[in-house]
């Protein structure tokens, strides 16, 4: 557009006419604003630094470890005796111990958690919900060392009454309390997922003459399946990383027994065992700490990422 059409444009807002003569130009850098923004940004960088520190620390110490022990021995060896002679560094017994506790916990937490979620989202009245939800929150908020106490002083004695040949420290007791521990997580997250399924889907199925059981199992749960799966995965990841309860309940005996009645050792309880003892820092035994922690970190990270991916896809569909 030609300037001539507005010959007096520059004069339009001359100070004489304008009530405020101040320029709208930047009057300088707002140092206070800049300082605060820098502070906030550096705070949020702490989380990045934390991740970097974890990864660098674990990887570098693990590489040191692999200079002394071959990866083949570590990943495929079936004997774990790093703290005494003759030392042996096969991590499989620890992985096995973690695996059976996790599987046992999942077998308890997944069906009961899902059933609770179904009850909460499909059947319970508002009053029931407002009773159950705080109970689940309380169960989720109880420190893990308390669950360890519960395993030793309650679960194991009960188990010993039922199965007289069970050891004092055993995988079953650990699996049971870890299952109880992650149950609230499965129930709460699955409940959220099922409640996100639109009412219209349910109404459609009811209109076809389906019973509540059919609506729930063939419509609601399949529709909310990805959210439910994500909750399972997160629960499994938590069970793998769980430390105190398994340390107290399952003992410190790395072995690859199929029986859940025997004492085992998980990756986490091995780490606790080393840090409670007086293993000198720098030696191979000390490095095993980092090798095992790296494995633990990698496994839980992969599961968490998969579960987040599933959850994001679920949110795209329903939210």
């Amino acid at each position: 557009m030609a300037q001539e059409e507005y010959p007096d444009a520059a004069g339009a807002s001359q100070p004489a006419e304008s009530p405020a003569a101040r320029s709208i130009k930047k009057s300088g850098v707002l140092w206070g604003e800049l300082a605060i923004k820098s502070w906030l940004a550096s705070c949020s960088f702490i989380s990045i630094v934390t991740t970097a520190a974890i990864v660098i620390l674990l990887l570098s110490e693990t590489l040191n470890f692999f200079e002394n022990v071959s990866p083949g021995e570590f990943f495929f060896g079936t004997t774990w005796t790093p703290l005494f002679e003759p030392s042996s560094f096969g991590v499989l017994p620890l992985v096995w111990g973690t695996l059976i506790v996790t599987i046992g916990a999942a077998l308890i937490a997944i069906p009961t958690g899902l059933a609770s979620a179904i009850y909460l989202s499909e059947y319970a009245s508002d009053r029931m919900r407002s009773t159950i939800k705080p109970v689940l929150e309380l169960l989720a908020g109880i420190p893990t060392v308390v669950y360890g106490y519960f395993a030793l002083t309650f679960v194991t004695p009960v188990l010993r009454n039922v199965f007289p040949d069970i050891q004092v420290f055993n995988a079953l007791s650990a699996a049971i309390v870890v299952g109880i521990m992650v149950l609230p997580m499965v129930a709460t997250m699955s409940d959220n997922a099922l409640r996100a399924v639109p009412i219209s889907l349910r109404q459609g199925a009811y209109a076809l003459g389906a019973t509540s059981y059919e609506v729930t199992t063939r419509v609601v749960v399949p529709a909310g399946l990805s959210g439910v799966m994500a909750s399972f995965l997160l629960a499994i990841s938590r069970a793998i990383g769980e430390t105190m309860a398994v340390t107290l309940a399952a003992g410190q005996t790395p072995n690859m027994s199929l029986s859940m009645f025997e004492s085992i050792q998980t990756m986490t309880s091995y780490i606790v065992q080393v840090s409670l003892g007086d293993t000198p820092s720098g030696g191979v035994a000390y490095q095993t700490l980092f090798a095992v922690a790296t494995l633990l970190f990698a496994i839980t990270l992969v599961i968490n990422i998969i579960s987040q991916m599933i959850l994001n896809r679920f949110r795209e569909v329903y939210e």
Binding site: S23, I24, K25, S27
Partner: peptide
Amino acid sequence: LIFSNENLYGKEVDPVEVRRR
């Protein structure tokens, strides 16, 4: 968008000052 002899979207313009006015 000319206001007070300046383009509101000029590089030098402080949006906070614009909103004050």
